[in-house]
């Protein structure tokens, strides 16, 4: 492995982690809920994409779209069960966390009952061409496709959050949920948008990661833990922090895989995260806790 390809795989991983981490980060800062059902959204979206490929068409765009839509639908379901009924009740933080954990338990077991334990593979979405740039650097289709599609969706999401009325509402909720509610922003409706958007991001992440891994009921766990770690490292509630952290951890992973071996990936990542958190307890670009007291 040489530097350019390490860099490339690092950036590819960073793109996927970024998708997951931004979803978790936005959910936390606008709804005040740690979405532990993110792994379920991930696995469910993988199954949605797989069913699309199996039943209808193997066209890359359609499979990706199916994954995104399934992810958004699961996100909305999680919101309806775990956010809407208890968001104004006492001790919502802990209860929301546990409710999403329970949903994730139920959902993964339902997936297991419906699809069985054996892993499914997705068709390759971006073809299998290669593009050689010099001697060391080979751009493969899946890496380029992953990078481009995640950047595209991320860019679209961020542009939507910057430019649209709904995005303005979400950003207001992220800044101060009480203030937003006083200004007439519906907490519940915004919650549904947020969960749909973050579910869609997780869906895209699922389809992209399932190029290299497989779709199985429990496949969402590791990506969720990685996404949570990245969000934590970047600072819950900060989009730019999540991106920086995604790059750092993606590079760490690529470097560890190249020089130490795959089994040390989590260890080095956690050492990095713990060091970052010990220096900055709120993450790289995290807001002070006062901003999110609800």
């Amino acid at each position: 492995m040489e530097w350019p390809s390490i860099l490339l795989s690092g950036i590819t991983l960073a793109a996927i982690y970024g998708l997951l981490a931004i979803g978790i980060s936005i959910t936390w800062s606008s709804l005040g809920m740690v979405n532990m059902a993110y792994g379920l959204t991930f696995a469910g979206a993988g199954y949605g994409a797989w069913m699309m490929a199996e039943q209808f068409s193997e066209s890359g765009m359609l499979v990706i779209a199916a994954g995104i839509v399934t992810g958004a639908v699961i996100g909305v379901i999680v919101c309806l069960i775990a956010f809407i009924p208890i968001h104004d009740k006492p001790n919502f933080n802990v209860r929301g966390l546990i409710a999403t954990l329970a949903i994730s338990l139920i959902g993964t077991q339902l997936l297991l009952m419906a699809f069985g334990p054996q892993a499914k593979t997705l068709p390759s979405l971006f073809g299998d061409w290669q593009w050689e740039l010099g001697e060391e650097l080979v751009l493969t289709a899946d890496k380029v496709g992953t990078l481009l599609s995640s950047l595209l969706l991320l860019g679209l999401t961020l542009a939507w959050m910057k430019g649209s009325r709904r995005g303005l509402e979400i950003r207001a909720m992220m800044m101060n949920p009480y203030g937003a509610a006083i200004c007439g922003i519906g907490v519940r409706s915004t919650g549904i948008y947020v969960m749909a958007i973050t579910g869609a991001l997780a869906g895209l992440g699922a389809v992209l990661l399932c190029q290299t891994y497989f779709v199985s009921p429990f496949s969402g766990l590791t990506p969720m833990i990685k996404g949570v770690s990245v969000a934590l490292c970047g600072g819950l509630g900060s989009v730019s922090g999540a991106l920086i952290a995604a790059c750092i951890l993606g590079l760490t992973e690529a470097l560890t895989t190249a020089y130490l071996g795959g089994q040390y990936v989590l260890i080095t990542q956690f050492i990095v995260i713990i060091i970052v958190l010990l220096i900055r307890p709120r993450g790289i670009a995290g807001m002070l806790d006062k901003a999110r007291e609800a």
Binding site: W28, V34, N93, L97, L221, T222, I225, V228, S229, L232, L236, L266, I267, F270, I273, I274, L277, L278, P281, R282, G283, D289
Partner: peptide
């Protein structure tokens, strides 16, 4: 140094590690 969910999520990661 950490409190609340930061610590919960971190320890979840340690468990997986």
């Amino acid at each position: 140094r950490l409190d609340g969910f930061y610590y919960a999520l971190l320890t979840l990661g340690i468990n997986e590690l």
